[in-house]
């Protein structure tokens, strides 16, 4: 029966469940995503990743949809990956930067949004220096989907989703992992969204950094009663050598030097000595632990060069996966019954 054996290897494995992407109008943060929805988005992103691996990276899915990227803050990877995601799905993507538009003449965020809505735009991808700016647009515009591409120090949900996707892809599942987020948590929207995402998926999140750069509500909480139930298991450890022990994932955050004028740190050298992710420190984590960074990196400050480009680093995969995740979200927002 050699033939039947050969045939068995040719059979494709088919997933037995058939989950659906729930309807969704806006992506503002991960707090209103269920773990099932996060998984559905990650699964769909895997389908999108297959499209990105083709010779001809183009599918007709969002033909005739218009996506505007509205960026009030500078960005490389987020804006480019949204643009690529939209274009691979055949949406028309229009890039708008605040510095080269009527925003320069003093047009408000709301009026800019209303103008775009009047032009029949389907989705606005917005990045803004003020926390809550995307929420304002989502509240005031009724015919446009809003995706938050980073607002102030509040949230960066698409970054968190691509981080979750990367971990799930590399380690198989997220539940039960120890995830250490180290650095300037206070100013990090990436950290805030990742705290939601990893907690919802059942990971153990440990926050680490200088006490001056940790949010007060995490630092001084009494029995976790100030936090929502899903976040109650978060641990805060200021000593990185302790925090990193047996970690499955180590995520270094960018030290936001533009926000350090208020004297959060005695000196950069002290920060580097105590909180840089180095080879010696990583040796204390689990073997094969993933090193992540949302970018852009300050190599030699929050992360050493050898780690950033070493065997444990998945920083480039994060960028690749970002396109697939954003495709999945655009697909989710732009299709389905209205």
């Amino acid at each position: 029966m050699s033939t039947s054996q050969a045939i068995e290897t040719a059979s494709l494995v088919v997933p037995t469940d058939s989950p659906h992407l729930p309807p969704r109008k806006h992506v503002l943060d991960l707090d209103d995503f269920s773990s099932e929805e996060i998984l559905a988005v990650i699964e769909s992103a895997k389908g999108m990743a297959e499209v990105l691996g083709r010779d001809i990276k183009k599918v007709p899915t969002l033909r005739g949809r218009v996506v505007v990227t509205l960026f009030y803050e500078s960005s490389t990877r987020t804006r480019i990956s949204f643009e690529e995601a939209g274009k691979v799905l055949s949406a028309d993507v229009i890039n708008m930067t605040a510095s080269a538009s009527s925003v320069e003449k003093g047009e408000s965020l709301l009026n800019t949004g209303l103008t775009l809505q009047a032009m029949g735009v389907d989705v606005i991808v917005v990045r803004h220096a003020y926390s809550g700016a995307p929420y304002l647009l989502a509240q005031q515009l009724d015919r446009v989907g809003i995706i938050n591409a980073g607002d102030g120090i509040h949230a960066h949900p698409t970054q968190a989703l691509l981080d979750l996707y990367t971990v799930q892809d590399k380690l198989g599942s997220i539940s039960g992992l120890k995830v250490v987020i180290v650095g300037d948590v206070l100013h990090s929207r990436v950290a805030r969204s990742n705290i939601w995402g990893f907690s919802k998926m059942g990971a153990k999140v440990v926050i680490c950094g200088p006490a001056t750069l940790l949010p007060l509500d995490l630092l001084h909480r009494n029995g976790g009663d100030a936090l929502p139930e899903e976040l109650a298991s978060i641990e805060v450890v200021t000593d990185l050598d302790l925090a990193i022990q047996d970690a499955d994932v180590v995520m270094a955050l960018r030290l936001q030097s533009e926000r350090q004028d208020a004297g959060f740190l005695p000196s950069l050298r002290e920060y580097i000595r105590r909180w840089q992710v180095t080879d010696e420190r990583l040796a204390k984590a689990k073997p094969g632990a993933l090193v992540m960074h949302p970018g852009p990196m300050n190599e030699g400050i929050e992360i050493s060069s050898s780690i950033a480009h070493g065997g444990n680093s998945v920083i480039e995969e994060q960028v690749t996966n970002g396109v697939a995740i954003r495709m999945a979200l655009l697909y989710q927002l732009c299709t389905g019954p209205k």
Binding site: P15, S18, H20, S44, E50, V51, G336, P337
Partner: peptide, 12 residues
Amino acid sequence: LQERSRPVLRPT
């Protein structure tokens, strides 16, 4: 795509 619910994508 506008009429029906969307199953999770599978990799081709």
